[in-house]
Amino acid sequence: MKAMKELTGVAAALRMINIDTDMIIPKQYLKTIVRSGLGKGLFHALRYDDNGNDRDDFVLNQEAYKNSKILIGGDNFGCGSSREHAAWALDDFGIKCVIAPSFSDIFYNNAFKNGMLLIRLPEDQVEDLMRQAEYGSNAQFSIDLEAQTVTTPDGNTHSFDIDPHRKHCLLNGLDEIALTLDKGEAIDGFEARQQQAHAWLTPAT
């Protein structure tokens, strides 16, 4: 996994609640067997018209926001399907951080596994961030993961919470599977105890 310590860039505001993962990446992009290249399908229905041309009214199509690194959304961002393709698509497009009042649990996990940072902030602060994001491409936001702060173009600093384990993995770009496999003895021990107590758990073949 890629490490992330700091992030500075333009933020795009998407003023919608319940942005679901079908909206982030629709079904036609789920037939891939690789993780890469999904940025072109990001927000497909919002981004392209029926002829496949860019919709001018969609924020990520506008010149100032084409290189956004941060996305600011409404409540319950990433709800619906568990498709990790949603995180892969955002990452491939260049979005490394999403800020919203709340996220669905599965999307929240998926994003961190891909080296992305998701930040929960209260609704009034998210509203303030959206307002400043609309200043355009000169409006740079800075995120400091170590200090757990977002600094806006106006110079306001907002603190955010993140659990220590996720923060540690992201700061150091750790491979979670390797970390877990280092605990092989604990897993062996658990399996032995479970087999003793609940032999019925082994499925019939």
Binding site: R35, S82, R83, E84, A87, I106, N109, N110, K113, N114, E176, I177, T180, L181, I187, E191
Partner: peptide, 16 residues
């Protein structure tokens, strides 16, 4: 509960 593909890989490798 549902999980993403990175977690599918994690379960396959470690059963946890």
């Amino acid at each position: 509960h549902g999980i993403g593909t990175s977690e599918v890989e994690h379960v396959l490798a470690s059963q946890t």
